[in-house]
Each structure stands twice: as structure tokens, then as C-alpha cells.
């Protein structure tokens, strides 16, 4: 059976064109999102996760720009759409949830109105019908006292409730794809678990696809079917979630996993890999991770490793796996 994809990102390059030169935040990234799946993007802060997500929405922060590649939404290349066409994609076919529920809602507009606004932008319905839709979706995402909440302002709601409002807003037009950029990073652990459960449940009910971005492998393990590990703007390893956690091949992925088990899945920053993220302005010609890699070989800084398929659907960007060489087993 041929796999159907909701989203196919191919060789995407996005950069910040700053006065001091180009910052290649997303570098030849390819990501496939099969229909109905949850795909995770994981990596340390600054590796280009948000930039990848914002490229899909074509909402890059200034001076960011998509430099090349294609982004196919059910075969339609989003990079080729006009801004006007893109507006009907945003919120209609693809929705996005941001990291900060505290600041992502307009402080002076009732939350119900903010959600019904999304409904009315993409569906030809009256204000009254939109309100009905909002109340219905509020109940579905677990907002109790929907009528009362509709009239609330953001500052009257907790972080968890606000993120539920954001999810309601994202879901109200039944998008094909939901992009959640660190949706639970700002929430405490119990609320985080509830929100993640809700997203999974919504996927099961609607069959939409989800891209979830996190620097937290616990979140990824909990939710995802497929995982992409990013480092310094590139994908360094991709696999289905079991393979990735059972037999990671890239030293960076292993480092991430080790740091998590070391911390007993506590949500700490992943700083147990020695060294720090390289400056994107001055990347080595070869592997960007080599400076921190315990297995680095002499040609690693010079030669860029290619993504190699080591098993079906499992790809690794590392010289260690090339041609069946040593795979970094301790």
C-alpha cells in the first residue's frame, strides 16, 4: 500500500538574512508527515525547530526567509502560493499552536471571540453559528463552563486553560495538519500530561496529522509515531519512535537519550552532552556535532555526512554508520 502524506518537506532551506551575513537556521531539511500520524521534531534549543515550523506556515520572523526547497501540503507546494492563498491555508488547512500560552492570546479580546474569529475567517457562517461551534469545541477540548469561558479574557484563565483555548482555536476549522511548537514547555507536569493526552485524543477522533516540536524526549516518547532529531539546522537522525528509543545510531541522539535517563525523565535542560551548540554563522564544512562528539574522526570536521538509510525508515547522518563501519557502540 502506498503511504499517503499530509505534508512533505523537501530540502527546505530557511535563513536569517542579517546584516552580518546569512544564518542558516534550517539547512536541507526533509520531513514527511504521513496522514493521521504524529511526527516529532526534537533537538536542543536553537537547532531550528521553530524555524522549520514557521517556514511551513510561511510566518518567519524578520529577517527570516525561505531560501529553497519545497513544502507540499497534500501535493500543493506552499512555497509557491501567493500571500493571499497562504492566508486561507493558515488556520484553515494548517493550524499552529505556540509555546507561550500566556502571551499567545490577545489580552483585550474575549477568548471566545478569538476562537470564533478563526471559524468565521474560513467558514461561511454567521456570528451566532460560529459561537455555537466555539462552545462545542470548548467542551471537546475539556473547557468546562464553556458559556462562561467564552466571555472570559485571557488574564482570567490559567496557563493550561489558555493552551486549551489555543487548541480549540487551532481545531475549529478541522485542519489537515496541526503544528504544536513546544505546546507544553511553559506548563507544569500534570497539566502537560493532560494537554498531551488531549492532542492524542483529538488526533484519534479526527484523523488529522500533527507535528509536535519539543526539546523534551519524554513528550516525544509519549506522543509521537515518527521522530526527527535536529542539530544545528539539519536532521541528524530520523526513525519511528520505537526504533529511535531502542536503537539510536547518531551519537547526538544517544547523548540526548542518556541525558534523559540520567535525569530520570525530569524536565531539565539537555545539558549533559558536553559542549554547546555551534554558532550557525560559523559552521564547520563537515559534521556540526563533531566538536562535541566522543567518536569524532579526523575527517568529520571536513566532510559532511549524508543521511544514510540504516534500516527501513531509519536514517542517520553520521560517518560512523557509513558503509557498515563501527556504529559507536560503547
Amino acid at each position: 500500500m502506498e503511504q499517503e502524506y499530509t505534508l512533505q518537506i523537501e530540502n527546505l532551506r530557511s535563513s536569517f538574512l542579517t546584516d552580518n551575513g546569512e544564518v542558516k537556521a534550517v539547512n536541507e531539511v526533509s520531513i514527511n508527515v504521513p496522514k493521521g500520524s504524529i511526527v516529532g521534531i526534537v533537538g536542543e534549543s536553537g537547532c531550528g525547530k521553530s524555524m522549520t515550523a514557521r517556514s511551513v506556515m510561511r510566518l518567519l520572523k524578520y529577517p527570516g526567509k525561505i531560501m529553497g526547497g519545497s513544502i507540499l501540503l497534500e501535493g500543493k507546494d506552499l512555497t509557491q502560493l501567493s500571500e493571499k492563498e497562504m492566508q486561507s491555508v493558515r488556520g484553515g488547512e494548517i493550524s499552529m499552536i505556540f509555546q507561550e500560552p500566556m502571551t499567545s492570546l490577545n489580552p483585550v479580546v474575549k477568548v471566545g471571540k478569538q476562537v470564533s474569529e478563526a471559524a468565521m475567517l474560513h467558514q461561511n457562517i454567521s456570528a451566532a453559528e460560529a459561537k455555537e461551534l466555539v462552545l462545542e469545541i470548548f467542551r471537546r477540548v475539556g473547557i468546562s463552563e464553556a458559556e462562561k469561558r467564552y466571555e472570559s479574557f485571557p488574564h482570567q484563565l490559567s496557563g493550561g486553560l489558555r493552551q486549551r483555548v489555543m487548541i480549540a482555536m487551532a481545531m475549529i476549522c478541522r485542519p489537515k495538519l496541526l503544528i504544536a511548537d513546544e505546546p507544553t514547555t511553559a506548563l507544569d507536569v500534570t497539566v502537560e500530561a493532560q494537554i498531551l493526552k488531549l492532542m492524542k485524543q483529538l488526533r484519534d477522533e479526527t484523523g488529522m496529522s500533527i507535528i509536535i516540536i519539543s526539546h523534551n524526549l519524554g513528550v516525544i516518547a509519549e506522543l509521537c509515531d515518527y521522530v526527527y532529531v535536529m542539530y544545528a539546522g539539519r536532521v541528524v537522525e530520523e526513525a519511528d519512535v520505537f526504533t529511535l528509543f531502542e536503537s539510536p545510531r547518531h551519537p547526538y541522539t544517544k547523548g540526548l537519550l542518556n541525558s534523559v535517563s540520567a535525569l530520570e525523565l525530569e524536565q531539565e535542560r539537555l545539558e549533559t552532552i558536553p559542549g554547546s551548540v555551534p554558532n550557525l554563522r560559523r559552521l564547520p564544512a563537515g559534521c556540526a556535532f563533531c566538536a562535541r562528539c566522543a567518536y569524532a574522526m579526523e575527517y568529520c570536521p571536513e566532510q559532511l555526512p549524508q543521511l544514510q538509510e540504516v534500516a527501513h525508515g531509519h536514517r542517520v547522518r553520521c560517518h560512523l554508520v557509513e558503509g557498515g563501519a563501527a556504529n559507536g557502540e560503547e
Binding site: 493558515r90 488556520g91 492570546l105 490577545n106 483585550v108 474560513h122
Partner: peptide, 23 residues
């Protein structure tokens, strides 16, 4: 951030300014 949210729901630049930013 809420300006990003407004854009992400499909508002045009004009709509974002008039309905979300100006207020």
C-alpha cells in the same frame, strides 16, 4: 506573540493591524 496567533489563523496584514494590533 498574539500577533503571530492572529496571522496563524489566517488574518491578512490589514486585519492583524486593525483587529489585533491597533486595539
Amino acid at each position: 506573540d498574539y500577533i503571530d496567533t492572529a496571522r496563524a489563523k489566517g488574518r491578512s496584514q490589514m486585519g492583524v493591524i486593525v483587529l489585533h494590533a491597533l486595539r
